[in-house]
């Protein structure tokens, strides 16, 4: 269960989280269901271990505060992903100001491995390293799309979280897919 589709009966939520108890319950549920996803978002957006822990902490604080105004109009999953990605995007922007590192979009990114290289010979750790390097080069919104896609969200769900049109997300996913397959299997044409 990804928790993103609000029409699913098992994902029914209270219409309002006015009481602290309701907010606490929502927070506990969000952590239980999306804790690993939040950790991955922090991991993909900050390489430094201490800063990553800070970022994850900031996301949790913002999430807990946000449940005071959660009204159930979107699913818990959409809400959690939006809060987490918004915090991560701000973190990336602040870090980019300090590092002066150029970020690019999916269309501009340099392919992570030589197409003629034997990608099958890479082990999982190396693949993850390359994947993290690739994600780390992306601008925040493209980064979000790739991360949401890796978390197995479909185009409609990614569109709902990011606010981008489905066609725009579709184009980005097409490019992301190509890079991901290449990363895992090597170039096949």
């Amino acid at each position: 269960m990804d928790g993103l589709s609000p029409d699913r009966p098992w994902d029914a939520l209270p219409r309002s989280a006015e009481t602290a108890d309701a907010a606490d319950r929502l927070f506990a549920r969000a952590v239980a269901e999306f804790g690993p996803a939040i950790a991955r978002i922090a991991y993909a957006n900050e390489a430094n271990r201490e800063l990553r822990a800070d970022l994850q902490q900031e996301i949790y604080f913002e999430l807990w505060r946000s449940f005071a105004i959660f009204d159930g109009r979107c699913s818990l999953g959409t809400w959690v992903y939006r809060v987490a990605h918004n915090m991560a995007a701000r973190h990336v922007t602040r870090r980019q100001r300090l590092s002066h590192r150029e970020l690019c979009n999916l269309e501009e990114i340099i392919e992570p491995i030589d197409p003629h290289d034997a990608a099958r010979q890479l082990d999982d750790e190396q693949r993850l390293g390359l994947l993290n390097t690739l994600i780390g080069q992306l601008k925040p919104l493209d980064r979000q799309i790739v991360l949401l896609y890796l978390d197995d969200l479909d185009t409609a769900q990614i569109s709902e979280v990011t606010g981008l049109s489905m066609s725009h997300v579709g184009v980005k996913i097409h490019r992301a897919k190509r890079l991901l397959v290449q990363l895992y299997e090597g170039h096949q044409s």
Partner: peptide
Amino acid sequence: PSESSAASL
């Protein structure tokens, strides 16, 4: 937090 990422940025 309910705003989409694009709007939030």
